[in-house]
């Protein structure tokens, strides 16, 4: 399966709070950011943690503006996120 995203793409993280292990940090949910790189392909941690079969899929470094994550701050945070956590975002949405 080809990668869904590439460097430069705008993406939005999911908002679901799953009842199991996940590697989508709570502070980075429901936020728009920009893919800066693909960081390899790995089975989904959420599935591995539950002993489920999982095929490798893309993992991305996604850059967020601190203002979009926390409502303040002038720094950036790059979070490494599995493809499953991301949806395309057309344009930046400021909260």
């Amino acid at each position: 399966m080809p990668d869904r995203f590439a460097a430069g793409d705008r993406v939005r993280t999911g908002t679901v709070d799953p009842p199991h292990h996940t590697r989508l940090p709570r502070y980075a949910r429901g936020v728009c950011g920009e893919v800066v790189a693909t960081a390899g392909h790995h089975p989904l941690a959420d599935e591995r943690a539950r002993g489920l079969p999982s095929t490798p899929r893309a993992v991305y470094c996604v850059r967020f503006a601190a203002h979009d994550l926390f409502g303040e701050g002038d720094h950036a945070v790059v979070v490494e996120l599995f493809e499953d956590y991301l949806e395309p975002a057309e344009r930046e949405v400021r909260r």
Binding site: P25, A39, H42, V59, A66, L69, H75, A76, V77, E80
Partner: peptide, 29 residues
């Protein structure tokens, strides 16, 4: 959330013009 303040507590005072990027090793790398 507040890297500039945390770095200051480590004794690292960065100029206000320095851009800070925090890398969260939240997955595999």
């Amino acid at each position: 959330r507040e890297p500039r303040a945390v770095l200051r507590e480590f004794g690292l005072e960065l100029p206000a013009s320095t851009r800070i990027t925090v890398w969260d090793a939240s997955a595999e790398s």
